[in-house]
């Protein structure tokens, strides 16, 4: 099975590659359109800022390629947010795979970013209900509200989307590559499912 990790600046690409290595799956890190198009699995990770990352993707036409992919695609953190319609982070138009807008946490009374381990609930679909109550590692200042694509929830002040899915597109707000055993199980579930 050929897995690719989409490369872009600022992305936490190496950690995801190492996590796959621990699962015994190797991955190619690339921003080459043909390599991405012909892969069996595509992972779109991300740590960074929405506006400059969308610009990077547009310059390489990856903003058009990614929504057109038919194999299973997994967005992580910023990757997930860029798969939504719009982000309040520098008012960025995103790829619109998930029909929801990403909004900022209010500065008070919560500390922002939402940083650390938080428990998943109402988990279903590929995340699996066995991960209900399990902890995952989050670091983010913007979030996707609950919507029909939500397949796992997390609560910080309010419940919001911890994971999304529509058709062959999967996404998580947390970092499965940094979430211990639970995270590894979620990455494995993504690699193993047959969308």
């Amino acid at each position: 099975m050929k897995t690719v990790i989409i490369k872009y600046q600022g992305g936490n690409v190496q950690s995801v590659a190492f996590a796959l290595e621990r699962l015994g799956a190797s991955a190619t890190v690339t921003d080459d359109a043909d390599t991405i198009r012909t892969a069996d699995r595509v992972i779109f990770p991300g740590v960074g800022e929405a506006g400059s990352t969308m610009k990077y993707l547009r310059e390489r036409k990856l903003d058009q390629l990614i929504p057109s992919l038919e194999q299973p695609v997994l967005g992580i953190c910023l990757g997930m947010q860029l798969m939504c319609r719009f982000s309040e982070e520098n008012n960025t138009r995103c790829m619109g795979i998930f029909d929801v807008d990403v909004v900022k946490f209010p500065a008070k009374p919560l500390k922002v970013p939402h940083m650390g381990w938080n428990s998943l609930h109402n988990t279903k679909d590929w995340i699996g209900d066995s991960l209900d109550g399990k902890f995952a590692y989050f670091v983010h200042s913007f979030f996707a509200p609950l919507n029909p694509c939500t397949v796992a929830e997390v609560t910080y002040g309010r419940p919001f989307s911890a994971a999304l899915r529509t058709n062959n597109f999967f996404a998580v707000q947390f970092h499965p590559e940094k979430s211990g055993d639970s995270g590894m199980r979620i990455l494995k579930a993504f690699l193993d499912q047959s969308a």
């Binding site: 996590a19 621990r22 590692y137 590559e177 940094k178 211990g180 055993d181 590894m184």
Partner: peptide, 11 residues
């Protein structure tokens, strides 16, 4: 650091 990242599944 690279070797640590390779082996560690927490931040």
């Amino acid at each position: 650091v690279r070797e640590i990242a390779r082996h560690l599944d927490i931040p």
